[in-house]
Amino acid sequence: NKFNKELQWATWEIFNLPNLNEEQVKAFIDSLRDDPSQSANLLAEAKKLNDAQA
C-alpha cells in the first residue's frame, strides 16, 4: 500500500531529524497517524522546522 510505505518513510525521517525536540517529534508522528495521506506535507513541515531550529 502506497500510503503505508510513505507513512513508514515519513515516520523514520521525522524520528531522525536532529533539531526537533521530543514533543515536536511526537506531535508530527501523531499527525501522521491521524492522516497518513498527509505524510509528504507533514514531512516537509517537519524538515522546515528542523532547519529553522538548526
Rank of each mutant, 00 (worst) to 15 (best):
N1A: 03
K2L: 07
K2R: 10
K2Y: 12
F3L: 14
F3W: 05
F3Q: 13
N4W: 15
N4Q: 15
K5I: 04
K5W: 05
K5P: 14
E6Y: 10
E6Q: 06
L7T: 04
Q8F: 12
Q8V: 09
Q8H: 06
Q8T: 05
W9E: 15
W9D: 15
W9N: 14
W9K: 13
A10R: 02
A10Q: 04
T11P: 03
T11V: 14
W12Y: 11
E13N: 03
I14W: 01
I14P: 02
F15W: 13
F15L: 15
N16A: 10
N16I: 07
N16V: 05
N16W: 05
N16P: 01
N16E: 07
N16L: 08
L17I: 01
L17K: 00
L17T: 00
L17R: 00
P18R: 05
P18I: 11
P18T: 12
N19Y: 12
N19P: 00
N19S: 11
L20H: 00
L20M: 01
L20N: 00
L20D: 00
L20I: 04
N21G: 06
N21S: 11
N21H: 08
E22V: 14
E22H: 13
E22D: 14
E22S: 11
E23R: 10
E23W: 12
E23G: 12
E23I: 12
E23S: 14
E23H: 13
Q24T: 03
V25S: 04
K26S: 09
K26I: 10
A27H: 13
A27T: 12
F28P: 00
F28L: 03
F28H: 01
F28I: 07
I29D: 01
I29V: 06
I29A: 04
I29N: 02
D30N: 10
D30A: 10
D30R: 06
D30W: 04
S31Q: 14
S31H: 11
S31G: 08
S31W: 13
L32Q: 01
L32D: 00
L32I: 08
L32R: 00
L32K: 00
L32E: 00
R33N: 14
R33L: 14
R33I: 15
R33W: 15
D34Q: 11
D35L: 05
D35E: 06
P36F: 07
P36G: 04
S37Q: 08
S37I: 05
S37F: 10
S37M: 07
S37L: 05
Q38M: 12
Q38E: 07
S39G: 05
S39H: 12
A40E: 10
A40V: 13
A40M: 13
L42H: 04
L42P: 01
L43I: 09
L43P: 00
L43Q: 03
L43G: 01
A44Y: 12
A44H: 11
A44D: 10
A44Q: 12
A44F: 09
E45V: 08
A46P: 00
A46N: 00
K47A: 04
K47P: 00
K47M: 07
K47Q: 10
K47I: 09
K47Y: 13
K48S: 12
K48T: 09
K48Y: 06
K48E: 08
K48R: 12
K48Q: 11
L49N: 02
L49T: 06
L49I: 10
N50M: 01
N50S: 11
N50L: 01
D51L: 11
D51N: 08
D51R: 09
D51G: 06
A52V: 07
A52L: 13
Q53P: 04
Q53M: 10
Q53I: 08
A54R: 09
A54Y: 07
A54W: 06
